[in-house]
């Protein structure tokens, strides 16, 4: 069988596009050519933000997306898309594959008639590019920043004015002062759109997105029409591309950081005071979400247990 997969990313996008290519390659190899994945870049078949709807209605058989795109209508998607102060990629991996995470999210996707497979994990992103230095919480007041999702709502609480700027205009808007700060993607991706030429200060840590998942989705009918062997082959390929992204994400970022640093970028860390304020605001936003959506509540409780367990284990094993 040949399965069309509509991506929310450009086909050749660094890392984020490579993850899908890796998955497609594994599927074809494992199934000995029985299953072929045909990749369609963002906008080729459907606009990025309509990919899930298209898979849900069966207009395309499969999709590849950053799960956080669907946070507006599937609150639980925000948990694995971009959870501020959330788990590290390794802990997220444990939870989603072995800790029941996949099953909880599948509950939300069942209503959409969509099969959810977490096949790509993305390392923490930096906090973003800032035109001026951030020394205190007051520096955030009135700051115009391109950022979305739960983090956008968190920042609103500390006085930032989140701005909606389409991907193609981010560079110009930041360079020319329409916005003061922007969060886009991983360092190597930010470098391709030259954000290092638009702003000087590159802030860490990526509190807004310590880890995130890109998923492969299938229309449920397409998925159910596959035989058991084919389903196993796809799931195995998915595990394989997950591991590939877990182990291939960071080195590229370090190289990109080095190049940008040599080009004059200041790599800075948000002060603890600012992080504390953000952590407090995040707790408020999460409390609101837990109240709004029972599934988000269930998933958050389950994920929290995992994070606490992982923290305990880490401190027990710490040799420092």
């Amino acid at each position: 069988v040949e399965i069309d997969v509509a991506s929310t990313f450009p086909k050749d996008m660094m890392f984020l596009g490579d993850g899908l290519k890796q998955f497609a390659k594994s599927v074809e190899e494992i199934s000995d050519g029985d299953i072929k994945i045909k990749i369609h870049g963002a906008g080729d078949l459907v606009p990025a933000l309509e990919v899930l709807n298209a898979v849900s209605s069966g207009a395309v058989s499969g999709g590849y997306d950053w799960v956080g795109y669907w946070g507006g209508s599937i609150p639980v998607a925000n948990l694995v898309g971009a959870l501020p102060f959330g788990p590290s990629p390794e802990v997220l991996a444990e939870w989603i594959w072995e800790g029941g995470g996949m099953q909880i999210i599948q509950k939300a996707y069942d209503k959409r008639n969509v099969k959810f497979l977490p096949c790509v994990v993305v390392p923490a992103e930096p906090a973003g590019w800032f035109n001026k230095e951030i020394k205190t919480v007051e520096d955030l007041q009135g700051l115009k920043m391109r950022i979305g999702g739960l983090a956008g709502r968190v920042l609103t609480k500390v006085g930032v004015s989140p701005q909606m700027i389409p991907g193609g205009e981010v560079f110009v808007s930041l360079e020319r002062g329409r916005i003061d700060a922007a969060e886009f993607s991983l360092p190597a991706v930010d470098e391709t759109i030259q954000l290092n030429k638009a702003a000087k200060n590159y802030y860490f840590p990526g509190w807004h997105q310590p880890s995130s998942i890109n998923s492969i989705t299938f229309n449920m009918k397409v998925w159910n029409d596959l035989n058991d062997l084919q389903k196993h082959q796809i799931t195995t390929a998915c595990r394989s591309s997950f591991l590939w992204t877990l182990t291939n994400g960071v080195p590229q970022q370090l190289e990109a950081l080095k190049r940008m640093e040599e080009g004059g970028t200041s790599i800075l860390r948000l002060p603890d005071e600012v992080l504390d304020a953000l952590r407090k605001a995040t707790a408020e936003v999460i409390a609101e979400e837990r109240q709004k959506d029972p599934l988000f509540d269930e998933a958050y409780a389950s994920l929290s247990t995992y994070i606490e367990g992982a923290d305990r284990w880490k401190s027990l094993q710490s040799t420092k």
Binding site: N53, S56, S57, G68, Y69, W70, G71, G72, S73, I74, N78, K111, R112, I147, G148, G149, G152, R153, T156, P162, M164
Partner: peptide
């Protein structure tokens, strides 16, 4: 129409507090 119904059924909304 189906496209709109889907948005209605799943409560689609802004993911950036809009």
């Amino acid at each position: 129409w189906a496209f709109m119904l889907m948005a209605y059924e799943f409560g689609e909304q802004s993911n950036a507090g809009g």
